[in-house]
Nucleic acid binder design. Sequence first.
DNA 1: TTAAATTAAGAACATATGTTCTTTTTTGAG
DNA 2: CTCAAAAAAGAACATATGTTCTTAATTTAA
Lengths: 297, 297
Amino acid sequence: MTKISRFQLIEDIRNGIDDLPFSLKSAAKYIVDYPNDFGLDTLRVSADKISVSPNSLVRLAQRYGFERFDAFREPFRTALVSDSEVIEDHQWISEIENHGEGGIYHAQAINNELHIISRSLHLMTLERVEEIATCIQQSKNCYVLAMRASYALAYYFHYVGRMALPKLQLVPKYMSNPMDELVDIGKEDVLLAISIAPYSVETIEAIRLAQEHGATIILISDSEVIGPNVKPDHFLKVAAFSTHEFSCFGGAMAVLECLLSYLIKKGGKKAKERIKNYEAMRDQTGAYWKPKRPRIR
Amino acid sequence: MTKISRFQLIEDIRNGIDDLPFSLKSAAKYIVDYPNDFGLDTLRVSADKISVSPNSLVRLAQRYGFERFDAFREPFRTALVSDSEVIEDHQWISEIENHGEGGIYHAQAINNELHIISRSLHLMTLERVEEIATCIQQSKNCYVLAMRASYALAYYFHYVGRMALPKLQLVPKYMSNPMDELVDIGKEDVLLAISIAPYSVETIEAIRLAQEHGATIILISDSEVIGPNVKPDHFLKVAAFSTHEFSCFGGAMAVLECLLSYLIKKGGKKAKERIKNYEAMRDQTGAYWKPKRPRIR
DNA sequence: TTAAATTAAGAACATATGTTCTTTTTTGAG
DNA sequence: CTCAAAAAAGAACATATGTTCTTAATTTAA
């Protein structure tokens, strides 16, 4: 009885995955992605998580030459007991440090990243989140503004957020000066501006314009004072310091993602429904790949 | 929602072990010694290994204040799957929980965010980073590819990265199908693809094209199996699970930022100089605002 | 379009698992 | 030593699990 290793088995599964029929493919993908869970769970629990029938897993096991399902799962189980040492604190980081110059760089980067994220999230009190979420929800239009590197953050926030809140508008949307796209902003509107040092002049000017038009300003930044005559109504501070010459955006990203979570969860039925529609559209247009399952009945 | 940690529970067991009757003591000792096995095995298997009756374990569970045996074993199970992702019990997070529905949502979001980031960075071993960095540095062109929400990540990576590495190219750069912009990709080139579930067909097809042209593929994703016939040369796994319907990108962002740090630091003099030039250019054109400091001296 | 082969779901079954109740054994106070 | 209390084992039970067999859907080939 030659015991097969988990590693070997995963490798086999991955290589053969393209030749599998639909539901077995979903199952195989799941096992490759979540080998730990697969080792721990029962057949039925795994089947449920994958959304296939229990006996699909039995068939998959047979495909790979196992007499019974238990034998197929066995390598994953033994791997669980043998090599899962729980390292309590972040000892793995200091471990990295002991491998030359590169190790020191990498450990520094990881430390810094965790630090700014933790700090940013800490600064994001429930009070502020609720304040900002309410402000966005009650607005007529909510413009999401950022320039240069921060534009990535605005793009992401808008991309995901508009599924729950169609009133979100990305600025700049076209290759223009953001001010041009804010000419119609008014009292009932909100401008959510994202800017990390160094602060671009366009952002500052756009905020000033919005202020003059009576819009409510939400600023997400590493500083409350990003330019002359910029007085945000709400301010969410993020940490952005780094070990090299640019700011780190991980903290801002984490904060935005948590804000998104909050908006989606508080969005209620309407948001849920809109998200459902997006998903349906995706399936129709085939924009995304997933191991398809045949329709039943 | 105060989940007890495995670590805490083992500590409790060890402290109380002397006051236990004979068979429960054997059981307790076994659990302390072989927590992994205990988490994995069924009640009867554990009882058998310890040589006590099944219901001795039930009684032990009750001793420690658990209603049922499953609850007692639970911490050991979760420790098995989430290998070493013990977020230090941030007091401030559980504090947030005590403020109604909104507080629970927010605390969940923060927890999840920290979890996926910590896990993603953990998966980012020095070995992989070095491998990937070398691969990028030695390439002729390095295309950074992503679609839809992930495009934000690619955009950011490219925006910052090109200051150190001008050979970085964002794809799609124009509003086109990414394949059109990859027609010239060749053996000496690298394609860094970023894709989080659900995976867009365009990304998958672009990777396949690059593969056929002999380019080296680096994939940053929550799964190694994102589509049929996609076999990356290097793979960096990130965690992306969330508490709502979309994937969370915070882990991917953190990983990319650490990769950037590494590339910049390893970029040497040339990179430093190029960055200096960028900064000089900024100052000249006044693209950025900075608070004027009073002249010293 | 039809027929055969493949693939998946569903139902049924024997066994395993966690729990509870009862009986037996052990412990300890008087 | 006796007897009550505590602890452990054993038996019985409902539910869960893996397996098998049957039926339905889907794909492939003619």
